[in-house]
């Protein structure tokens, strides 16, 4: 009996190691361990064994079964691994084949630059507001300290609808609307479209965009203006950017300044981009003129403030090295896709 068991076991293990597929292994399970299998046959013939021998034989049978099952399991795992490997090998692809893209659209470079600027000022607690593009003379000029006879009002620059209504030439008009609301303090930026009577060419457009900034509060100083714009320039053009304030004149600010930043191409050493000067002019600014505050109903003895205006196209053209302003309004997809 014992010999027979050994023989069955040896035969089973032999078949297992010879098995070429999962089906072969299954076949071994059925023929050896199944209801009609060899081991089951042994158990069935236990009645011929002496009763005192039965436990011993039973134990041997169980041991043989365990050995075969373990061998089967091991062979199966090995077999499955081989099958998966073969499958993976078959599934190799050429990863350099072209990507399947979703063809997502692109934002206009102006908008990308605008959102950058908005992000910086919103982070500093500024509200983004808007004003009308077709505007009253009063808001575009008079309330900004540009009286009727001022050369800045020259019709050469301004598109008029009639004597009183015009296309705004500067987003500064939005300052006045905000101040008139009477809610202080004010920290706002106002982006928007403005219009000047310039013929279309590589550097001019009769319609372009500005971003106006205005802060009004108690104890606002020129030093605050410098600090704010230095921070802005660093955020927009990089941590190493330096700013230079040059005295200038705007009717609605006093003192006024123009602001240059170190050229972000050469870092200030001078290149073709900054025409060798190392500096690039980016905006105009100043302390809100007391008369402007007064006209909008704010007491200049109690409140001071600063304002600044940035040309959006100027930033976009500089930042993205676009050499012709006309590209911004042509909407050629090959241009837009680059942003």
């Amino acid at each position: 009996m014992k010999e027979k068991l050994e023989q069955i076991k040896a035969e089973a293990l032999g078949k297992i190691s010879a098995a070429a597929s999962l089906d072969d292994l299954n076949e071994v399970r059925i023929t050896q361990l199944g209801k009609k299998g060899a081991l089951t046959g042994i158990l069935k013939s236990m009645k011929d064994v002496a009763p005192e021998e039965r436990p011993k034989i039973g134990q041997l049978v169980n041991e043989a079964r365990a050995d075969i099952e373990a061998a089967l399991e091991k062979a199966k795992t090995e077999m499955e691994r081989k099958v998966r490997e073969a499958k993976l090998k078959k599934e190799v692809i050429d990863v350099t084949l072209p990507a399947k893209k979703n063809n997502v659209g692109h934002r206009h470079p102006n908008t990308i630059a605008l959102e950058e600027v908005e992000r910086i000022f919103v982070g500093m607690g500024y509200e983004v507001v808007e004003g009308p593009e077709v505007e009253r003379d009063y808001y575009n000029f008079e309330a900004l300290n540009i009286p009727a006879d001022h050369p800045a009002k020259d019709e050469q620059d301004t598109f008029y609808v009639n004597g009183d209504i015009l296309l705004r030439t500067q987003t500064s008009s939005t300052q006045v609307h905000e101040m008139e609301k009477g809610k202080l303090p004010i920290r706002m930026i106002a982006p928007g479209r403005v219009f000047r009577s310039d013929e279309v060419d590589a550097t001019h457009s009769p319609s372009f965009h500005q971003i106006e900034g205005l802060v009004i509060d108690k104890n606002i100083t020129f030093a605050d203006l410098k600090g704010t714009l230095a921070e802005f320039a660093k955020e927009l053009f990089g941590e190493k950017t330096k700013v230079k304030f040059r005295p200038h004149h705007f009717p609605f600010t006093e003192p006024s300044a123009e602001v240059d930043v170190t050229c972000f191409k050469c870092g200030g050493s001078g290149c073709r981009f900054c025409k060798g000067s190392g500096w690039i002019e980016i905006l105009g600014c100043g302390m809100v003129h007391p008369h402007v505050l007064e006209m909008s109903g704010i007491d200049p003895e109690e409140y001071t403030g600063f304002a600044f205006g940035v040309g959006l196209e100027r930033i976009a053209l500089l930042k993205y090295e676009i050499d012709d302003m006309r590209l911004l309004y042509e909407n050629d997809i090959r241009f837009l896709k680059q942003f």
Binding site: F121, G125, P185, N219, I220, D224, K226, E231, F245
Partner: peptide
């Protein structure tokens, strides 16, 4: 002229 940031009441940027 020094560079400082406006002090005073905090405002919400939005």
């Amino acid at each position: 002229i020094p560079t400082t940031l406006p002090s005073g009441e905090a405002t919400t940027g939005k």
